[in-house]
């Protein structure tokens, strides 16, 4: 198993604020990892450490390199997309292609042009004149054209309409992803990426709350919908969260055997959004 990112005891402090605390994780190749957390959880700080933009405590290795010391070499194999506002407004599409081609040894211009040919973007278009959706297409074309092993996305679809968001996520899987590459997505829109994720990481107040493959989510977590008369029995099993809908009670459990729950009502695997809300709630109560 090739490990593209290895963090051990990673910490970062901004003055008096501890932004990351003892973050330890491993991201192997061939994964699509969702990094999910509320605002101020430390997602962007973690990604900035990953990009070598911030100094940190503890150990961090990206693509086998120290992100701070070997930043330029590391970035040859790492593509990064923040939200659409990061593309320089004053550049034209063809200038961006020329720039990337000139400075990035692994940028494949023909591939970017082929990607752009499927859109309405013209080489003479200036970034400032593009809609948010077009900017995303352009940024995606640039990122896809880099022969990178790690693609880091920080809220990449913020402010986009649903059509562009769907197209974006579809492109990630069909045009970029393979068994040698890993995609790390930091987002709030968990419902939309849920179906493409292979791994899930929850982060809150700089700490990792949850880090497990999606196929283990179903083994570990369960959502029970039961009648009011079964609620007391379900409550006795210490659910993470409880809600009521149309006279039925919905519970979310962590690590409770399915056999014990099946007799109480209808069982299903919780969605990432439900799981996220439940985990955050438990932390707040704690």
């Amino acid at each position: 198993m090739v490990e593209l990112v290895k963090a051990k005891g990673l910490g970062k402090r901004y003055g008096k604020v501890q932004a990351l605390t003892d973050v330890s994780l491993v991201l192997p190749a061939g994964r699509i990892v969702g990094l999910i957390g509320p605002n101020g959880a430390g997602k962007s700080t973690f990604l900035k450490c990953l990009m070598g933009l911030l100094r940190f405590d503890g150990g961090l290795e990206v693509l086998g390199l120290d992100p701070h010391r070997d930043r330029a070499r590391m970035l040859e194999q790492l593509s990064y997309i923040a939200d659409v506002a990061t593309l320089p407004d004053w550049m034209r599409v063809d200038q961006l292609l020329t720039y990337c081609e000139g400075v990035h040894p692994r940028f494949r211009r023909p591939m970017a042009e082929a990607f752009l040919a499927r859109t309405d973007l013209q080489p003479s278009f200036k970034v400032s004149r593009l809609s948010k959706g077009m900017k995303t297409q352009l940024h995606l074309a640039l990122a896809m054209a880099v022969d990178a092993r790690l693609l880091v996305l920080d809220e990449p679809t913020l402010g986009l309409d649903i059509l562009y968001r769907k197209a974006f996520h579809s492109s990630l899987v069909t045009d970029f992803f393979d068994e040698d590459r890993t995609i790390l997505i930091s987002t709030h829109q968990v419902e939309e990426v849920e179906h493409i994720l292979t791994d899930l990481i929850f982060i809150r107040q700089g700490r990792i709350l949850l880090n497990l493959p999606m196929d283990e989510v179903a083994d570990r977590f369960a959502q029970l919908s039961c009648a009011p008369e079964q609620a007391a029995a379900a409550r006795a099993l210490a659910p993470l969260r409880e809600e009521s809908f149309f006279g039925r009670h919905v519970f979310l459990f962590d690590g409770v055997e399915r056999e014990r729950l099946e007799s109480l009502g209808e069982l299903r695997t919780p969605g990432v959004a439900d799981l996220f809300v439940a985990m955050m709630g438990r932390e707040e109560r704690a």
């Binding site: 004053w90 720039y99 081609e101 000139g102 400075v103 940028f107 211009r109």
Partner: peptide, 23 residues
């Protein structure tokens, strides 16, 4: 790999061109 990439001087000229595009 990027066949057009030549590093060194070529990269430097692109960096300079980029400044003139902006300013």
């Amino acid at each position: 790999m990027n066949s057009a990439y030549q590093g060194g001087w070529k990269r430097f000229t692109v960096l300079v061109r980029r400044e003139f595009w902006e300013h």
